[in-house]
């Protein structure tokens, strides 16, 4: 099958779309495509540490699915006349990728699931849902459909995580907390009001955040919706709500 998207970075391109907000969608899509590609590589790596053949197959299936999502986003970009760049080595995504690979190196299947299914998927599902509500035409439909698909496949992962927590809640919660400090700090910096530490390496021009309001989005709602989804996912795992609320309120702003 022809590869529709590159893993290691395609060059940002000039926007030639007649759609006045196309350059904003280009940057939004760049984040989405990069996130999907990183998820695909994460699942591929996860397959290498699974003991159970069924889990291997499932991880590879997810990898393929995420790759398909990336391709769908690239195709939506083409429809509005923009080439969508991607770069899993972009600043924030690289930090997350490195944290995930540390867990792979430790063959820590549970930590990998927490990073991918609890943290990254919370941000993906919540932000895609918000984008799906405001993006025009098929672009919005694609975001909404992928949000729904992403949400659908986390249930099995949550079952595994709940089962692991039931065996030993304290070590599980401690592991989750340590991952939270690492991954969630990065994710909340990504959706902070402004990029205080320089460019994210994905926006094709200046930072897209100040322009999001032109398409009916704000970083505040993307961050709020994502953290809400994250808290609810942690609730479903059985973590005490007051503890997870403290964790979230202590994240950087």
């Amino acid at each position: 099958m022809e590869s529709l998207v590159s893993l290691n970075g395609s060059e940002p391109s000039v926007c030639n779309s007649p759609l006045s907000t196309a350059s904003i969608w280009q940057d939004v899509l760049a984040q989405a495509v990069t996130g999907e590609l990183m998820a695909a590589t994460n699942y591929s790596a996860l397959a290498t540490i699974c003991d159970n053949p069924e889990e291997v197959a499932e991880a590879l299936e997810h990898a393929q699915g995420e790759h398909g999502h990336a391709a769908a986003f690239v195709a939506e970009g083409r429809k509005i006349g923009v080439d969508v760049p991607s770069n899993i080595n972009a600043k924030y995504w690289k930090r997350i990728r490195e944290a995930f690979m540390r867990s792979i190196a430790e063959r820590d299947f549970i930590a990998c699931l927490i990073i991918q299914e609890v943290m990254l998927e919370s941000f993906a599902v919540a932000s895609y849902s918000r984008v799906g509500k405001v993006a025009p035409g098929s672009l919005g439909e694609t975001f909404a459909a992928i949000a729904s698909e992403e949400e659908g496949h986390i249930e099995h992962a949550l079952d595994i995580l709940r089962s692991d927590r039931a065996k030993a809640p304290e070590p599980f919660d401690e592991k989750l907390y340590q991952l939270h400090l690492d991954i969630m700090t990065t994710l909340t910096e990504m959706v902070a009001k402004e990029c205080r530490h320089g460019q994210c390496d994905l926006c094709h021009g200046s930072c897209v955040k100040p322009s999001l309001s032109e398409v009916g989005l704000t970083t505040a709602e993307l961050r709020g919706a994502s953290l809400q989804h994250y808290l609810r996912t942690l609730d479903m795992l059985g973590l005490p709500g007051e503890v997870t609320l403290q964790w979230v309120t202590q994240l950087p702003v």
Partner: peptide, 8 residues
């Protein structure tokens, strides 16, 4: 407004 109801 995004915080879900919970014990504090």
């Amino acid at each position: 407004p995004w915080i879900p109801p919970r014990t504090i």
